[in-house]
Computed example of a mutant assay.
Amino acid sequence: MTKLNQIIAVEKGIKSDALRQLGETHTSLQKPGLLAGIARTYQPKDEEGEQLPPESTRVQVTSEEVLRQTAATLTRLFDVTATKDWANTEADADVRVDGEVLLSAVPVSYLLFLEKQLADLYAFVKKLPVLDAAEVWSFDDSSDTWRTDAVRTIRTKKVPRNHVKAEATEKHPAQVEVYYEDIAVGYWTTVKFSGALPARRINELAGRVEKLQQAVKFAREEANGTQVTDRKTGDVVFGYLFR
């Protein structure tokens, strides 16, 4: 018995061969000389006239033969494709993760869809924003975000001060230098919040996606190992078209 994965393996080659042969056939039909033939003989007016040999050109391509070749070329393609498409409606497999059936009797077409979607999801998960590793974060249920512990910092204000470099005399005023001193005037209490995720959470999600990707691939291989029934549609189709 033929298996679905065997049909899939040969389908591409059969299709490319069919297209090549059809291209060659189409090219031959565009050359009128290949479809034309002639036969002529010469007869002199009297017995003493010059004798010339007969001339002939054989028809090299006939349209009916082209139709037969086209039907033969496409029949195999039609049969293989029909066998694959009918089998795809019957072939399925369970998707198992850690020995448990996550999805049961999944058809091949949906398994292929899942593979594509999971590849996109993996790329999405790997691009999720990560919490700043320089901070210590804890989850805050009330805001549904991550938060840091409160950090208290001093708020200062520059206050001018006078420094007397020289006292005043009868002849000279005092020499005073102005400088600024940072004086504590209050305290900031800061808590940082973030909607990003811890790196371990992102790695966990990516790991789940990868595990499911493997499970889907295994299921697809199992489904593609389903035995198929050969379908013969080509003879019916071309029996009607070119009869």
Rank of each mutant, 00 (worst) to 15 (best):
L102Y: 05
Y122E: 15
D120Y: 03
A105E: 14
D85I: 01
T89W: 05
D94V: 03
L67R: 15
L112K: 15
L77D: 11
D85V: 03
K127Q: 12
T75C: 07
P129Q: 15
L118C: 06
Q69A: 11
T70R: 02
A123G: 02
T81R: 15
S104I: 05
T75P: 00
L102E: 04
D92W: 01
D79Y: 02
T83R: 11
R68G: 10
L77F: 05
Q117T: 08
E100W: 09
V66L: 07
V80G: 04
D98E: 15
R76K: 13
L112W: 01
T73W: 02
F124D: 08
A72C: 05
F113C: 06
P129A: 07
D94Y: 09
Q69L: 10
F78H: 10
F124E: 11
V95E: 06
P129G: 13
L103Q: 14
E115S: 13
E65R: 15
D79G: 08
P107Q: 08
P107V: 06
R76P: 00
V101D: 15
L118M: 08
F78E: 11
L121N: 08
A119Q: 08
S104Y: 05
L77A: 08
Q117H: 12
A71R: 15
F113H: 13
V97Q: 15
T81Y: 05
L112F: 01
A119G: 06
A71G: 14
T89P: 00
V125Y: 10
P129H: 15
Y122D: 14
A119V: 01
Y122F: 02
E115K: 14
V101W: 09
T75Q: 14
Y110F: 03
Q69C: 03
D85C: 04
A123M: 01
S104E: 15
Y110L: 01
T89G: 07
T73S: 01
E100D: 12
V125C: 11
A91P: 02
R68E: 15
A93V: 02
K116C: 05
D79H: 06
K127I: 04
L77N: 12
Q117M: 08
V125I: 09
A87F: 02
